[in-house]
Write a protein that binds this DNA or RNA. Structure first.
Lengths: 349, 349
DNA sequence: TATTAGCACTCAGGGAGCTAGAGTGCTAAA
DNA sequence: TTTAGCACTCTAGCTCCCTGAGTGCTAATA
């Protein structure tokens, strides 16, 4: 445990330094700490403590005559020491009014996943000034409701996949010969009876073997219909919602091109984002990943705050904020948390 | 006509300067022109010509001892003087191989507008290194095919709007009382008979008055169904596809934060983009808008190259590239043109 | 008369040198 | 154990200066 190494005094100083650096990204000097945070020590004492903290790896100096800057380890300590109680965590600046308003807004657009999550990410990034990312419900947690096949033109069929969560996807299928709407109804009925109530990924597991039989029993159209299920089973890259590159440009951390380029490179690769968020798709509560702790190379200079939203008790998708390591963790955590709760409420109803 | 003012010599020099500045964004000196472009004159002569060109407003000097830089008027001359013949316009660097490959790719994904246009914009921005924007087919040019109403859960109905172009939109409707699938079929049949074959915007025009009657004749559900049509009639802001902010960061023109911020601000406002592109939605062929010619404030420092794609002969949507004023117009024009042709081909088939 | 060589002039950009100030570590005193 | 004092370090910003690229003008040239 970190607190084994650090006495109370050191912890206070460390927290003061991190807090100050989060407030404004300038190396923190000993004098500044004594002035701003009334710890009851002289600069000299603070200097000694800071030297110790540096030795332990919590702080570092950009150069000899500069103040101290937190290391990843320093941020980690700071985050772990944040008050965890629901209400104390900084929710106060996110009013109940907002929660009600936002939940109401989501309620209206909940039938369209893409609108819903665009709204979620854009709200989150506008409020936080960090980049926000969201993943729609995972197929593992999505239950097949039924499929509808509609004859569209001569040899084109539209297939619509419905799930209990309301997520649905549609595809156009080219069918070789002409089929009647009655045929289509029969095929859809067959599939619906077979698969209703299964989770999409359960279906996927049995799909490959089944398809061979189906192909024999029915015509090609059935296998095409099943194909759609298959397609709906994977979260596509397009399903990663990202917003806030513009908002982030206001932060001093991204005032030079190199950092912005780095960040946009990271979030441009939606596949990578997907991988990142999936790591956290099962976890409960808000998780914070700081700098080098990140498994993704391009994010090692940044921090990520993630949480899951739920359908009832089951986490079904992920919401995250990506910002500089010196991000306002308390605020980011509470924002992600509040928004996830709103989304959960929307799915619950 | 500009060529009235300028003799051949001046035009050659002007073109050389613009070309050179497009190749690399450094003020062009007289000596450089003589070295690089063999016009058969000494630097002194070039200097005289350049001084004239500056007087006419085609060139300007960042400061006295620097070379010349094109003004908007200079670019305009350059663009107008570009060879217009199809093949000479620089298509050679976009191979037939690419066209075939790309058209094939579009063919596969053409049933999903959002995938289609994401592909179009991302391809275009990756190839050109400029920001690319696209607008899906406009409702004026979209013909109502039919609507399907599917009972989903107890009091939720899914409505699906089909058009001849294959664009369709779906919405969930809350219905107050329980309705049967038969009811829904009857309602859909009614709407389909009434509106089949009309352009979506024609429907919109008659909608308001009709709705009052329908409401009396049928129940609320009908008006909800018509509501969906209404919703589908407008191009929503979400329907503007934009890509390439990352690609553009490699250009020296956007090597400082201010420019990038400006650009992202401009393209963040999708509503504005929509307005911009709609200006060109009826025009034939490729249009170029340079700097101050732009009606949108945030784009006055940039250039826009737009064209339309067609369904048969009718232009139905817009594709554009946004880049620095010193963009490679020849290349941008031919790229936009080629891609629009590919898209047109996809709609035609 | 049109072109060019020559020349004086201008100005941005970059490097050298300097200073101010913030911050440190160490030592010795409280 | 804490603190005051002090010498030391290093960056950021400033000025000064110089270089080089490029100009405009004038006079010579074809």
């Amino acid at each position: 445990m970190i607190s084994d190494f650090l006495d109370k005094r050191s912890r206070l100083v460390l927290q003061a330094v991190v807090q100050s650096y989060i407030n404004s990204p300038e190396p923190v000097g000993s004098r500044y700490v004594t002035k701003k945070y009334d710890l009851g020590f002289s600069p000299a004492t603070i200097r000694n403590i800071m030297a110790d903290l540096e030795e332990f790896g919590f702080l570092s100096q950009p150069h000899t005559s500069a103040g101290r800057v937190p290391t990843d380890k320093g941020y980690r300590f700071f985050v772990d020491a944040l008050p965890v109680s629901e209400e104390a965590a900084g929710h106060e600046d996110i009013s109940n009014e907002f929660i009600n308003h936002f939940t109401g807004k989501l309620q209206v657009i909940k039938d369209d996943m893409s609108v819903l999550f665009s709204e979620v990410t854009s709200t989150l990034s506008t409020l936080s000034h960090y980049v926000s990312v969201a993943l729609p419900p995972k197929p593992e947690n999505t239950t097949f409701n039924r499929m509808e096949l509609i004859k569209y033109k001569r040899n084109i069929v539209i297939a619509i996949l419905l799930t209990d969560e309301g997520v649905f996807r549609n595809r156009m299928l080219n069918v070789p010969e002409e089929v009647t709407q009655e045929d289509l109804n029969r095929i859809a009925d067959y599939i619906n009876v077979e698969y209703a109530g299964y989770a999409l990924d359960e279906i996927r597991r049995t799909l490959v073997t089944r398809m061979k039989y189906e192909k024999v029993l029915w015509d090609k159209l059935v296998s095409k219909a099943i194909d759609i299920c298959e397609q709906a089973l994977h979260i596509a890259e397009d399903d990663v919602f990202i917003s806030g590159l513009y908002d982030v440009m206001d932060l001093p951390d991204f005032s030079d091109m190199a950092r912005i380029k780095e960040l946009s490179k990271a979030i441009k690769d939606k596949h990578m984002m997907l991988k990142l968020l999936e790591e956290f798709s099962e976890s409960e509560g808000v998780k914070v990943v700081i700098g080098e702790e990140n498994s993704i190379e391009d994010l090692k200079g940044l921090s990520v705050v993630t949480t899951t939203y739920k359908d009832g008790e089951r986490p079904i998708g992920v919401i995250a904020l990506i910002g500089p390591k010196r991000m306002n963790y308390a605020r980011a955590i509470s924002m992600v948390d509040v928004v996830a709760r709103c989304v959960s409420k929307t799915f619950g109803s």
